[in-house]
Structures are given as C-alpha cells and as structure tokens.
Simulated assay, not measured.
Amino acid sequence: MRMLFCGDVVGRSGREAVTSRIPVLRRRHGLDLVVVNGENAAAGFGITEAICREFFAAGIDAVTTGNHLFDKREIVATLASDPRLLRPANFPAGTPGSGAYAVPTGDGRRVVVVNLMARLFMDALDCPFAAAEAVLAEHRLGQNAAAILVDLHGEATSEKMAMGHHLDGRVSAVFGSHSHVPTADAQILPGGTGYQTDAGMCGDYDSVIGMKKEAAVARFVRKVPGERLSPAEGEGTLCGVFVETDDASGLALRVAPVRLGGRLAEAYPPD
C-alpha cells in the first residue's frame, strides 16, 4: 500500500499547493491513501466545512488536526457529522468527533488514520500514549487493519520520537506535525514502522512558519504586540512524507520525504 501524509496546510497558499497536486500524485504514483493535517488551513487558524469539502474533492481521504482545531467554531458540527475530519484522540471525553477513522479502500481493505496530540509545551490533554493504546486495542495491524497511519501533532521532538518507538512494529507509520518545518530523519524504525519527526508544512516557505515574515519578525524584535499574523501568500510547497507498506504485515517497506513546488528542494514520491 502506498500512502502520503501532508503536513500542516497553512492558508490559501498551502491549500492550493495541496489541491492542485494531489489528484496528479494519486494517479502518477498509485497512492492508496492521502491524509493532510488541516488545522491551519483557514487563513492560518482553524478549518471550515467548505475547506474540508475542497480537500475531499481533491482526493484527500482524511484530514487530521491539532491545537487550532476550534479556532473556527463552525467546525464543531462538521466534526460530529463527517468521520473523515479527525480531532486528536486524547481530547477529553465528550469532545465532538473521533480520533481515528477507518478508510475503506477500493479492494475492501481498511486503512486506519489516527490523530494524536502531544503534551510537552502544548495544551494539557489526556495522555496520548494511553489514547494510542485504546485505538490499537480496536484496530490491529495485519489483522483488521491493512495499514495504520498516525499523525502526532506536537512541539517536542523528543515526545514525537518516544511515540514512534512506543508504537514501533504495531503501526505502519508515525509522522509528526505542528512545527511547520520538515525534519531530515525519515526512516524505518527497527520494528518496521515508518517515521519522521515532522512532515513540515504545506504553504509559502518565504515566511515565518507560514506567516508573513514582516509582522512575525517585528514581534521578536520589538517584543510588543503588533498586527495580527496572517499567512504568507507566495507560491506554496506541498510538504509531506511517503510510505509504502507490505501487504501482508502492514509494516513499512519504504519511507521518503516529499517536497513539491515553492522554495524547497523538490523531492518526489518514489515510483
């Protein structure tokens, strides 16, 4: 199975980078599953139902989120009605939506997408490790799940790496999101799980993590509140991670970074 996970989509530039390229990538590289983190898709803060529809129409199978999920309050209704939009599984009990979604494939297999949120330097949530265990008690790799892809939305690289090793051999891939900067550690862990600490962002990299650089730099220089941050509007880069899994075990065979368009050196999914 061939899957692509795209990191945080930031604003219109990020949306265009994703929606213009995903249909071509699916056809050209035979992708069975495409997942994007969409929590910054609506002008950099949150996501809307209309943006979700735009993503699904482009061939995206599931949308994960994180700490900016509820920046647009209208999304609560979408969470409750559309299982393709996920929220972190370790949000408190009673939060609308679900942290896992089993995507049906054309050949009858089930691919499970899991959304978790880390806690170091983040919101005080339930334990993501315990939440992962609860999901895996229901979905077992190589048994009732052909593949399991985990998006861990978090700040600390150490916490993301710990989750990768904790789930090694039990999921197909653990990919991090949230930092908006792609890490250079794409690998297959000893137990067979694909891993990258952060997939990076889909957006304009002539920016400060996707936001217009002038206002962002001024905040650091002057240390006083300035104008509201807004997404950079130059050409966006689709930034993510590709993973190919073994049909029998569901474990990773290949992992590779993907970077298309914009300012970063291009890297295509392997054929």
Results as ranks from 00 to 15, higher is better:
residue 159 E to W: 13
residue 227 E to M: 04
residue 108 G to K: 11
residue 97 G to I: 07
residue 176 G to Y: 09
residue 162 A to S: 14
residue 149 L to I: 15
residue 219 R to M: 03
residue 182 P to N: 01
residue 108 G to V: 02
residue 83 P to F: 02
residue 162 A to N: 04
residue 228 R to I: 03
residue 215 A to L: 13
residue 162 A to W: 10
residue 131 A to S: 15
residue 216 A to E: 02
residue 131 A to E: 01
residue 142 G to K: 06
residue 83 P to Q: 05
residue 111 V to T: 12
residue 151 D to T: 09
residue 228 R to D: 12
residue 186 A to Y: 09
residue 157 T to Y: 03
residue 82 D to K: 06
residue 220 F to H: 14
residue 158 S to I: 05
residue 154 G to K: 03
residue 218 A to W: 10
residue 172 S to F: 05
residue 206 D to F: 12
residue 171 V to H: 11
residue 213 K to D: 08
residue 183 T to Y: 09
residue 90 N to P: 08
residue 226 G to F: 02
residue 126 D to Y: 11
residue 177 S to E: 00
residue 167 L to P: 10
residue 210 G to P: 10
residue 215 A to F: 05
residue 118 A to Q: 01
residue 90 N to W: 08
residue 185 D to S: 07
residue 206 D to Y: 12
residue 144 N to T: 07
residue 129 F to H: 08
residue 182 P to Y: 04
residue 156 A to W: 06
residue 182 P to L: 01
residue 201 M to L: 01
residue 157 T to C: 02
residue 178 H to Q: 06
residue 86 L to D: 05
residue 214 E to P: 01
residue 91 F to E: 06
residue 144 N to I: 11
residue 138 E to G: 15
residue 196 Q to F: 02
residue 156 A to E: 08
residue 126 D to R: 12
residue 113 V to E: 04
residue 104 P to A: 11
residue 97 G to K: 02
residue 191 G to L: 04
residue 192 G to H: 09
residue 193 T to S: 13
residue 193 T to H: 11
residue 178 H to V: 03
residue 137 A to S: 14
residue 110 R to D: 12
residue 139 H to R: 14
residue 90 N to D: 05
residue 96 P to H: 09
residue 173 A to R: 01
residue 155 E to P: 03
residue 211 M to K: 13
residue 207 S to R: 00
residue 210 G to A: 03
